[in-house]
């Protein structure tokens, strides 16, 4: 149980990433693929947050008294996650707007039927 206790965040993050990959590999509907991408994204964000997490950690504010620097959470991953969330939103918006246009052209979102371009 100790292993689970220590690594539960990593297991959760990689679990989400693999769920997303599974969706990307098996589904054919474009919207579902985009959902898969989004789940992968969430998993990655969670993974980055895990990197700086401490149990019972506090915010890294040096000016406030009573906070011990050793229990402070690393703030860099949180800044990274903010950036990566913004990028994720941009990709998601781009993907959904492409999906709308694709539906207007083909009348379907099934990627098996959308194959005018091929080898």
């Amino acid at each position: 149980m100790d292993f689970l206790n220590n690594y539960i965040f990593y297991i959760g993050a990689f679990g989400l990433i693999f769920i997303g990959l599974y969706i990307l590999l098996t589904r054919k509907n474009l919207i579902k693929l985009i959902i898969g991408l989004s789940i992968v994204d969430t998993g990655v964000n969670l993974l980055i947050i895990c990197m700086g997490y401490l149990k019972n950690g506090t915010a890294p504010i040096f000016s406030r008294k009573g906070l011990n620097p050793e229990t402070m959470v690393d703030p860099t991953p949180q800044a990274l996650v903010l950036t990566s969330i913004v990028i994720g939103v941009a990709v998601l918006a781009m993907a959904l707007s492409l999906a709308i246009r694709l539906y207007q052209h083909y009348g379907t979102l099934d990627m098996r039927k959308i194959k005018e371009q091929k080898w």
């Binding site: 990433i17 990959l21 990307l24 474009l30 693929l33 985009i34 991408l37 992968v40 994204d41 990655v44 993974l47 980055i48 990197m51 991953p77 990274l80 990566s84 990028i87 990709v91 781009m94 993907a95 492409l98 999906a99 694709l102 052209h105 083909y106 959308i114 005018e116 371009q117």
Partner: peptide, 22 residues
């Protein structure tokens, strides 16, 4: 059509890079 295929492959690739960075 090709943009949406490119997007799905490309953003999965970027996610992999981000995992490596993490």
């Amino acid at each position: 059509e090709s943009a949406s295929k490119y997007l799905i492959q490309g953003s999965l690739g970027s996610s992999l890079i981000l995992i490596a960075i993490a």
